[in-house]
């Protein structure tokens, strides 16, 4: 991979789209302000850590729209040809796209979120009360980062796999696969354990059942939990990257 070429690809991406990105940043700030306003105005109905919820909604909703826009040229042969014609390897082009979809987006979104939140908190702060900021580093909340990377890669995989409506198809597929596997998993656990009251759980993680009016939780042994975490946080995105790379290369051919 040639760093100079990637720098040029990055400049091309920026030059071509900076006007749209400027509007997108303003739109995102507007949406975030609106969400802060709604949850603040009806704060009695929104108990709990609302700002983290807003953070995640903005991060994922904006992220998938932005991620899918990066490879939208591939959906039309005429535009796709032009993208393919740029003298850089598939790996270089893909690297820049992934850089935009994950690192650049995340950094922009984080600064945008804190600026908007800071401004809003200052606007509605009550005298004598300290201004609260969303703390994303405590209570393992930073795990959102790994989920976000995987999510963006799945959106990009959708972009290179489906010609039309790739974003909608990808999101629909994710919802279908997740709900199917969730229910199938509970059913499988019911068969394996003979426990009829299994009413929830997480794939590759735990399940819960009811006994004498209380929920009983069954967890995987600690070493298995570590293996699962390492697999989904590190191995899974690398494999996804390779699949996207192969798909992208095949489209070029």
């Amino acid at each position: 991979m040639n760093v100079n070429k990637m720098y040029l690809l990055n400049r091309r991406q920026w030059r071509e789209n900076y006007k749209v990105y400027r509007i997108a940043v303003l739109a995102m700030a507007g949406i975030l302000s609106f969400l802060f306003l709604v949850t603040w105005h009806w704060r009695d109905s929104f108990a709990g850590d609302v700002n983290r919820g807003i953070f995640l909604i903005g991060l994922f909703a904006g992220g998938c729209l932005f991620g899918s826009s990066l490879l939208k040229d591939l959906s039309r042969p005429s535009k796709g040809m032009w993208l393919m014609g740029i003298p850089a390897s598939a790996g270089e082009k893909l690297f820049v796209v992934i850089l935009y979809a994950t690192v650049f987006y995340l950094l922009t979104y984080l600064s945008l979120f804190y600026i908007t939140e800071g401004f809003f908190s200052w606007l509605v702060k009550e005298p004598g009360m300290p201004v609260k900021h969303t703390d994303l580093l405590h209570n393992e909340f930073y795990n959102f980062f790994f989920t976000f990377i995987n999510f963006q890669l799945l959106i990009l995989l959708g972009s290179v796999s489906f010609k039309r409506g790739s974003l909608l198809i990808s999101i629909l597929l994710m919802i279908i696969v997740f709900s199917l596997s969730y229910n199938a998993n509970n059913y499988l656990l019911m068969l394996m354990t003979g426990e009829k009251t299994i009413d929830g759980g997480g794939l590759y993680n735990y399940f819960q059942f009811r006994h004498a009016g209380e929920n009983v939780y069954v967890y995987l042994p600690l070493y298995v939990q570590t293996i699962v975490t390492v697999f989904f946080n590190y191995c899974f995105p690398i494999v996804l990257y390779f699949i996207i790379y192969l798909k992208f290369q095949e489209t070029e051919l």
Binding site: L189, M192, L203, Y204, H211, V216, V218, L220, P221, V228
Partner: peptide, 25 residues
């Protein structure tokens, strides 16, 4: 395959749960 393996392990953990123990969670 991962779902199957983890479910087998969960089923094994399930058998270890003592339902009479007030501190089972």
């Amino acid at each position: 395959r991962g779902i199957y393996i983890t479910d087998r392990l969960l089923a094994r953990q399930y058998l270890k749960v003592n339902l009479d123990d007030p501190y089972k969670n």
